[in-house]
């Protein structure tokens, strides 16, 4: 059986050879012949293993080398990195390294380094880029007007200060409920008052007035919009100002006990002093009234309280008035 097989096998290549030579005649090519018939073919009954050993080669597209290798030294960096972007090692020609390692080991390089991708970079805001962009937007800017250099100068013409706040956050919405707040502040000395209206105005505004700095501050956050709050603040200011000039009929009934400070003009001490000065005066003669400095010293003594200076001054004034020297 086996002898018959080998004989058959020996005869086969002869035919093959003949066929190949015939082809060679037609194609007229000088090819070396492949002599694979010299090896014995191995009969393997378990062919399964061999089939799996031949792995399929994964065909991969050629990967281009990083762009940094082709970059010129004097390139325009603002064109390479025009806007905010996560770090990409193939575009940045810097030998960066990032990461903590044990002592002696080098930090991880820029390729496949997630730490470099995480940190926000300012590669689009290099000094030349900032200068370039600022020169482009400079034509929208206007200089500060002359004559208003110092705070004292601008406060004379623009006494009211309006403070508003804008918010910029990384959210899908641009609305922030805090942005509605408006603060209007001005010095009270910039508004004109008489003594009654000033007193009434201060009572109306309450603790919005700072006594030490003489500044009135109105903060409004009632309305949902900034513009509405600003209008409301100005409305409050206007309403309080105009209301303070109104004298209600019941304000006339303010008695001495309701006064918040002592006034010489409307008190008993003035009548007594006049009585002393006009002692034994004839009927119809011009009345003498106590001097202004005396009135001041009495007011000071009662409003500020008794201290050494006020008492001494009062003593001097009394002596002067009574001509006791």
């Amino acid at each position: 059986m086996s002898a018959g097989l080998t004989r058959l096998w020996e005869r086969l290549p002869l035919k093959k050879h003949a066929a190949q030579s015939r082809i060679r005649v037609f194609s007229n090519q000088d090819q070396p012949e492949i002599e694979d018939d010299e090896e014995f073919r191995v009969l393997s009954l378990r062919t399964v293993k061999q089939q799996f050993q031949r792995r399929q080669q994964v065909r991969r597209d050629p990967i281009t080398p990083p762009r940094t290798t082709r970059m010129a030294v004097d390139q325009d960096w603002t064109a390479v990195w025009p806007g905010p972007r996560s770090f990409h090692p193939a575009s940045v020609p810097l030998p960066l390294r990032q990461g903590f390692t044990e002592r002696g080991a080098a930090a991880p390089s820029k390729f496949a380094n997630a730490e470099l991708m995480k940190i926000p970079n300012f590669l689009h805001l290099t000094p030349p880029a900032i200068r370039q962009q600022c020169e482009a937007i400079k034509r929208f800017c206007t200089p500060w007007p002359k004559g208003l250099e110092t705070e004292a100068k601008w406060q004379r013409h623009f006494p009211i200060e309006v403070t508003t706040t804008d918010y910029c956050q990384s959210l899908p919405t641009i609305r922030n409920p805090e942005a509605r707040k408006v603060t209007v502040s001005l010095k009270l000395s910039d508004l004109r008052f008489d003594s009654h209206s000033r007193d009434k105005f201060l009572r109306l505004v309450g603790d919005r007035y700072n006594k030490e700095t003489d500044i009135l501050t109105i903060v409004t956050d009632r309305c949902p919009q900034k513009k509405q709050n600003y209008d409301y603040a100005l409305y409050l200011l206007t309403a309080c100002y105009h209301e303070s000039f109104v004298t209600e009929p019941w304000e006339e009934t303010k008695s001495e006990a309701d006064m918040e400070e002592y006034l010489f003009e409307r008190n008993q001490s003035k009548i007594s002093a006049e009585g002393i000065l006009n002692w034994n005066a004839k009927e119809g003669a011009p009345k003498e009234s106590p001097s202004k400095s005396y009135a001041n010293s009495v007011e000071q003594l009662i409003n500020e309280g008794e201290n050494e200076y006020n008492l001494g001054k009062y003593k001097e004034e009394v002596k002067k008035m009574l001509n006791i020297v």
């Binding site: 601008w154 013409h157 009211i160 200060e161 403070t163 918010y167 910029c168 508004l191």
Partner: peptide
């Protein structure tokens, strides 16, 4: 970012 601006106004 939170920007608060102080505007100057006339009376």
């Amino acid at each position: 970012l939170q920007a608060s601006r102080t505007e100057l106004q006339q009376v």
